[in-house]
Nucleic acid binder design. Sequence first.
DNA 1: CGGTGTCATGACATCGGTGTCATAGAGATG
DNA 2: CATCTCTATGACACCGATGTCATGACACCG
Lengths: 363, 363
Amino acid sequence: MATIYDVASHAGVSPKTVSRVLNGDAPVSKKTRDAVTAAMDALGYVPSHAARSMKSHKSGLIGLITGAISNTDETATQTGLPELFIVQGAQAVIERSRKTLLISDTGGRLDRVPDLVRTFQEHRVEGILYVADYHKPLELTLPGKGIPKVLVNCFDDQGTPAIVPDDEGGQYALTKAVLAQGHRDVAYLTLAPTQEATKLRLKGFKGALSEAGIPLDPRLVQAADLFGSPGEHQLIWDALDRFFAGAKRPTAICCGNDRLAMAVYGILRRRGISVPEDVSVVGYDDHRLISETLYPALTTAELPYSAMGVRAAQTLLDLLEDGATQPSAPIRIGGQVQHRASLIAPRAEDTDNVINLKGRNEI
Amino acid sequence: MATIYDVASHAGVSPKTVSRVLNGDAPVSKKTRDAVTAAMDALGYVPSHAARSMKSHKSGLIGLITGAISNTDETATQTGLPELFIVQGAQAVIERSRKTLLISDTGGRLDRVPDLVRTFQEHRVEGILYVADYHKPLELTLPGKGIPKVLVNCFDDQGTPAIVPDDEGGQYALTKAVLAQGHRDVAYLTLAPTQEATKLRLKGFKGALSEAGIPLDPRLVQAADLFGSPGEHQLIWDALDRFFAGAKRPTAICCGNDRLAMAVYGILRRRGISVPEDVSVVGYDDHRLISETLYPALTTAELPYSAMGVRAAQTLLDLLEDGATQPSAPIRIGGQVQHRASLIAPRAEDTDNVINLKGRNEI
DNA sequence: CGGTGTCATGACATCGGTGTCATAGAGATG
DNA sequence: CATCTCTATGACACCGATGTCATGACACCG
């Protein structure tokens, strides 16, 4: 590979002059510049990042740690939308700022994080983005003291800058959209109750109900997420059994994510219940591969992963410019409700019922 | 950040001795080694990759170009399985060889490839993996003359090493599995006819049919892929209309990918046809988010993206060791047929029919 | 006891750029 | 024409590692 010295002698100038042409940081006569440029082309010269960053003490690298890239089939916790979309958003921003993203993954094994950070340190990354596979508290202490960091989809209690989805607000808005269609008996098939998202979304769900003056029927809230493992279909059957066991059958079902909604579609069909005529179904994530392809297309709340990635990268870049930072609460990113064919108004008899209720409540 | 000089003076030895401790390439007395190690710990020393690679002329970096990471929502050509899984496989292998993967993405725009390669060259990557989003001919000439490259999911006519899926073999095996259940009237809802995968799989489909002595009914082969765009559901309706228009209705439907199968499930339900009792459905890709979650779970052929990534990385590493390489044909990677609930034997009357036919053919 | 080999260590140059400072000319000015 | 600015360029050191070669301290040998 050609060096700046090769270019210099080829063009009959000093290496420093070549450097000046490269960086445009000092006047160079047009004649010299042309000669240098021609030499660079002729030799196929590309400057060495290593030499540059060594002198400048700036690597121009941002490290990103994720589990997405090698969620091995074994550990595959396909909770919802792949973190990949977060990486997308971050990549776009980082690249625009003329830095390079160094992506590493844990392969699903947290104990590999120190190694990855070590590699980042060898490369002298200027900052680190740590991306979790779903909204959760940070499960470890990140090494790499002194390197600015931004957490994405997770948060710690040290005040490290963190970007998380607004689960409560998203479920609230989605539930409002369901109620706006006239539904009053709304079931909620949640993800695992231990998950951060479940707790927050349940809050949003309850908030929307109570605001509409609808008491929460505990029978209509069931958990049914096994991360896609074999027993899950059975779990959903059972949950639906409970939903439809009572006198007042739900006219709409909220699902913990689009993946659950996909399973619910199939199971409802098997039970002779059609979507959306008999019961409306909504998901969460707006995993478009699912939500747009399902028939009927799925109404869902956007999990704004791409926007979160963008925001995280911006936050990190700001942090790199400003230097110090004070602890702050996680930044919550909101998403849109995507209204599609799976959500319609309940049948007339139910609607009447609802209108009566409504009347009663409001008078 | 501490340097080797800091460590040296802290330990009271020369920088070169610190280097020896780091690399273990020359004898160092235990006492000295302990002092150096202690100094490194005390200072939090991490060697500089830049300085090392400058001296050694080896970057230890492998570049990977993909479109996966920022398939913007606009261009989102969600044809099947995300290339992500290819990246996974490659990452695992590269990491095991103590190299670092530098991942860049085109953001769906091919014209950015030269920039990315340029960045790779600045970092002096030792090799490049180019990953296409679906099986296709390479659409551009890759810059970066002299850098060993391996194509994944695509191929050129220059004999560049390439790793592609065995689409023909996969569809052949899958179709055989369908026929083995006793189906004789099998429809095929293909992806866009221009796609490499469509051509190859159709070959496999036809091969399996003809081997079973079943003539191909052209009416039972329809294309219906719009990459998930809005008009697609209608397209599938129409294709299914044609399938069920004739006297002999298909008892099984092969779909171009799992995503199409997901849409087909919904549309069949709407038409009052149950899966798998009335008609069996199979997909392609084994996109487990879909195939395992759909109810009933989907029989499908594995698109071995992870294995392809592994093979590609290995091929590249071999190439780096051996040096020169002679042009070769693309390496085809086969996948397994995943038998799940969506494929069962056709109803008795059809089976009788089949048995008759079979009898006729065999006698 | 001098010669020789081994072990442990250090001095110094080098990789490919860039920052600092010096300097040769070309014009401008008085 | 001497002096003063600029402009354009080069010499040289340095960033943080490591390869090469040299050397001091012993131990061993005859």
